[in-house]
């Protein structure tokens, strides 16, 4: 079996977890206006896992990532990384945004060197590691350009390089390829797959694309409509396949059907919520 249902928050997984989310909830607003974005959510991620979270729009998956990143505080429960509770943003958690988070007033090299500089690395050393990281993502020839001069795909490479250069303990990706065209997205997905295998980084990846999740992730979480909670979790082995065209195999299609079935009813619920507003 290429995918199998598992429990994500077993005592075993918790014990050896890199990132541990326990009873995490988030409510926006107060009183009659209050909207619960996240119902109690339990997820344990162990070192080196690539956990993709899929769910209908507005299910709180971005809220979940924002809490782990430290941009938002949970209303209840706790998020713990490497044994330390998460309080505010920190350089040990690298974040890649969908788009629009690069600094247009800095060259590509300065953008990537920003992290090491902010963490106290000397200017020369910071530029050197930025240069090396940019070469790794195939942008060695664009270091002097400004982000707005690059295509969307190249901008996302800069975003990834910028997050990786700090060597974070975990990489948080918030639908990083959602705004790209199909070809660019597939290319970058292949590269991320290779990069993850090479570095063994722990990754938390938010997406609305089931194919993307199946192709990249070692673990997949399906979330319910708002308020979001874990509906089902899977161990997924397609990312281990050396075949880049694994997405066209019957097993892949069967796995996609299974998750799509789970997601369909949630998407309908999400639609109803939206039309009620």
């Amino acid at each position: 079996m290429m995918i199998e249902r598992i429990e994500l928050a077993t005592p075993d997984r918790r014990a050896g977890s890199k990132l541990n989310l326990e009873g995490l909830t988030k409510t926006f607003g107060a009183g009659a206006e209050a909207v619960q974005a996240l119902a109690p959510t339990d997820i344990a991620v162990t070192e080196g896992e690539f956990l993709a979270i899929v769910g209908p729009s507005g299910c709180g998956k971005t809220t979940l990532l924002n809490i782990v990143a430290g941009f938002e505080t949970p209303s209840g429960g706790c998020a713990v990384l490497d044994g330390r509770p998460i309080e505010g943003p920190g350089s040990e958690r690298g974040v890649v945004f969908q788009q629009g988070a690069l600094f247009n007033w800095m060259s590509v090299l300065e953008n990537v060197a920003f992290g090491p500089r902010a963490c106290g690395v000397a200017p020369d050393a910071a530029r050197e590691s930025a240069q090396a990281m940019l070469e790794k993502v195939g942008l060695g020839g664009f270091v002097e350009n400004y982000p707005y001069q690059l295509s969307g795909g190249m901008q996302q490479r800069v975003g990834i390089a910028r997050a990786l250069v700090n060597d974070p303990a975990i990489l948080l990706m918030d639908e990083p390829f959602a705004a790209l065209d199909q070809q660019t997205r597939e290319l970058l997905q292949e590269e991320v797959r290779g990069m993850w295998r090479e570095t063994g980084k722990t990754v938390l990846w938010i997406t609305h694309s089931i194919e993307e999740a199946l192709f990249l992730a070692s673990h997949i979480v399906v979330m319910t409509a708002r308020p979001g909670r874990v509906k089902a979790a899977f161990r997924c082995r397609f990312s281990e396949s050396p075949d880049l065209l694994v997405a066209s195999t019957p097993e892949f299609t069967a796995a996609k059907r299974e998750i799509l079935g789970l997601l369909r009813s949630e998407s309908e619920a999400a639609q109803r919520q939206e039309s009620m507003i």
């Binding site: 990143a69 941009f71 958690r93 690298g94 629009g100 988070a101 910028r162 700090n166």
Partner: peptide, 17 residues
């Protein structure tokens, strides 16, 4: 944009930076 400020913060930047 809040995103840019968030990006700077999670790269390790303090208030002054």
């Amino acid at each position: 944009s809040t995103k840019k400020i968030q990006a700077a913060r999670c790269l390790g930047a303090g208030n002054w930076t």
